[in-house]
Nucleic acid binder design. Structure first.
Lengths: 219, 219
DNA sequence: ACAGAATTCTAAGGAACATTAGAACATCAC
DNA sequence: GTGATGTTCTAATGTTCCTTAGAATTCTGT
C-alpha cells in the first residue's frame, strides 16, 4: 500500500481514471453522449448483460459522470454535464494520439482515415450553406427526429442503396451516424463512392457535431 | 465478458484509463511533469517501494505516457510528450469539477482555496512586469536552478522564516512550489500572511506555469 | 574478468474488479 | 390488493491488479 502524504488526493483523482478503465463503461458513456437511455436500451445497444450494465452505470454515477432519472418503472441515464462530453472527446483524441494500437484497431474497424478523409465538425459548420454540400444522416429516423445537423437529409443505412438517386451526383456528400466509432457512416461513404459520388464521413459523427457546435442543432 | 462489436476499440481506449486508475501512477506523472527523474529518485520522492515504482513506470510506458532513457547504470524517466502534461492538467481540472470529495481532500491538505485565493499562471503572466508583484520560489535551490518563473526570487521554505525581511512589505507576493498539490506554497502563504504580507499561491505551482506559458521560462 | 550498483524480470499472495444468478424492491395495469 | 415489469441489491465466481521478495540483467569501475 502506498504511503506518501498526498495519497488521499491521488486516490480521489484515480476514481475518474478507474471509471474510464473499463471498455463497457467507455462504451456506455459514448452511447449516452447527447442522448438519454434506459438501462435496458443501453444493455441492448451495448450488447452487455442487463445486470452488468446496471452495475457499471452505478460505477459511473458514483464518479459523477452520469445521472439517472426515474420515469415510472424505468430508469433513464444521461451524462451528468456537457463537460463530460467535452472531456470524453479530449480523452479519445488523447488516447488516439498516444496509442498506435488504437489507431490500428479503429482503422481495421472503420477503414483507413487517409482514404475516408473525414470532415471535422468545424469544417462542416463553415460549409453548411454551400449548395454543393449535402449532409446525409444515416441513422434511424427516430434518431434523426431527436436532433440532427441542420439541413441534413435523413436516409437510414438500410434504405440508402435504394434511394441513391435522390442524391445529386455533383454534390459532395458528408455522411454521419451517431458516435465517434460508429461503423455505419464509413460504410455509407464506401457505398456512395462505389456509385461515383464524392463522399466523406463526419469526424466523430453526430456526437462530434454536438460537442463542437451544439448551439446550431436542428430538431 | 463483453461481446459488443466495438469491444476492441474500447478495450484500447481503456488502456489510458487503466494507466490513470492508480494513485501511485498519478503521483509519478505529476512528479515527472516538466522534470526528469531516475527510478530511485521517484521512489524516494513518492514514498513508494523501488520495485513497485519500477513496475508502475513500466505500466505508464506501455501506455506511451512516459519514456525512459538509460544513462549508465541509471534509468531516467520523463513524460513522453508535452501533450501528456496538457492532458494531465485537463484531467485534474475535470476530476476537481466532478468530485466534491476531491475538492474536500485538497482543501483539507492545502487549505481552503477561497482563503488562499490562488493566482492562475495567466494572471501572473500579465502582472510579471508589475513592480508591486514579487514572485517567490520556495522550492529547493536545485529545482530553482533547473528552471523558474522569470524574475522569481529563490527562497527555499526552510529559509523563508529567517529571510522575511528581504521581501518588501508593500508588495503582493506570489509564492509557488512544484506541483498542483504541493503543500509548501500554501504553507509559505500562511506564514507570510501571519507576518503581515499580502500573499497568494500560484495555481498548480511551477507545473501550472510551465503548462500555460513554458515559452517564458527563465533558467 | 570481477565486484558492485541500479533496474528489471519472475513468481506469488492478497486485494479489488467484472460478471452473473437469485432475491428484493419499486411501480404500473388491472 | 395482485401480478407483471424494470431495476437494483446481495452473494459468489473467476479474473485482473498491486505489491514485494528473490533472481537475473546491464553497466561501471577496477
Amino acid at each position: 500500500m502506498a504511503e506518501f502524504v498526498e495519497e488521499p488526493i491521488y486516490a480521489q483523482l484515480a476514481r475518474i481514471g478507474k471509471a474510464l478503465a473499463n471498455p463497457v463503461r467507455l462504451r456506455l458513456l459514448d452511447l449516452l453522449d447527447h442522448r438519454e437511455f434506459t438501462v435496458e436500451q443501453l444493455a441492448t445497444a451495448a450488447g452487455v448483460g442487463l445486470k452488468n450494465t446496471s452495475a457499471q452505470l452505478q460505477h459511473l454515477r458514483a464518479a459523477n459522470l452520469v445521472t439517472s432519472r426515474k420515469d415510472g418503472t424505468r430508469v433513464s441515464y444521461r451524462l451528468a454535464d456537457p463537460q463530460v462530453s467535452t472531456f470524453l472527446g479530449l480523452y479519445q483524441d488523447f488516447a488516439g494520439e498516444r496509442l498506435a494500437d488504437l489507431r490500428q484497431v479503429v482503422s481495421d474497424h472503420l477503414g483507413d482515415p487517409e482514404t475516408l478523409q473525414p470532415v471535422t465538425a468545424e469544417e462542416l459548420g463553415q460549409r453548411l450553406d454551400d449548395p454543393h454540400v449535402v449532409v446525409l444522416d444515416v441513422r434511424s429516423a427516430a434518431e434523426f427526429d431527436q436532433g440532427h445537423v441542420p439541413g441534413a437529409v435523413s436516409m437510414p443505412m438500410g434504405e440508402l442503396r435504394d434511394r441513391l438517386d435522390e442524391l445529386p451526383r455533383a454534390a459532395t456528400i458528408v455522411a454521419y451516424c451517431q458516435g465517434p466509432y460508429c461503423v455505419v457512416s464509413p460504410n455509407a461513404v464506401r457505398l456512395l463512392r462505389e456509385h461515383g459520388y464524392r463522399a466523406h464521413p463526419l469526424d466523430s459523427g453526430f456526437t462530434g457535431w454536438a460537442r463542437a457546435g451544439g448551439q446550431r442543432l436542428a430538431s
